[in-house]
Amino acid sequence: MLAEVGRLALFTRDAVLRGLMPPWYFRQVWDQILRIGYFSLPVVGLTAFFTGGALALQIYIGGTRYNAENLVSQIVALGITRELGPVMAGLMVTGRVAAAIAAELGTMRVTEQIDALTTLSTNPFKYLVGPRIVAAVLTMPILVGIADIIGILGGYIVGTTSLGFNSAAYIKNTTDFVEFTDVTSGLIKAAVFGFIIALMGCYHGFNSKGGAQGVGRATTNAVVSGSILILAANYVLTSLLFEK
């Protein structure tokens, strides 16, 4: 366990110090932005939509106990931008992207493609790890920004169709209430989660051994450790960002 933490720390250092230094492989970065960001849009959008809808319903039902059902729009907006948007998007992207990265790099490891890169004068940290980290850190905030909008929209649709809120009032309540920092705090979280996702995928992929089974194990480990680290980081970030 301790040895594992040490290995991860060394890997992180290499990933940052070597992976993010020139030469930069812009083509690789662009490919990864498409793969990590663009193709995650449907998953993240759907997740946010249903989460927003369910949240509105819950708050309304729970709120009736205290005559607080009018707070639906505000609480949905807060919950989505501060917590659920980044966390749900982070977890969904972990399932999709960290797994894909671990499987791809793991296969490259066991078929000696990573060794082959080195013999062809290409540092695998710069060619494989760096672009994935950059792409994930850049695209996660964008994904979460979109998730925020769609999540609030989900709440709005449930609120105005089945809970009987007035459409204009719902929108006004939301826009009056949400502050700039509610959104930015979520986007900061998203960037950190992006780093975790790419790092976990690369780390487990790079260290996989033992053929197809080893790659399978790397994929599972990437998703499990990525998800747990995201939830842990979320707690730490929440306390750092919101505790005065």
């Binding site: 490259m108 082959a116 890169l117 013999t119 004068s121």
Partner: peptide, 14 residues
């Protein structure tokens, strides 16, 4: 490394 070329056992094509 630039002075070396290597054919891997399993070809290791990208």
């Amino acid at each position: 490394l630039a002075r070396f070329g290597m054919l891997f056992q399993g070809a290791a094509l990208f």
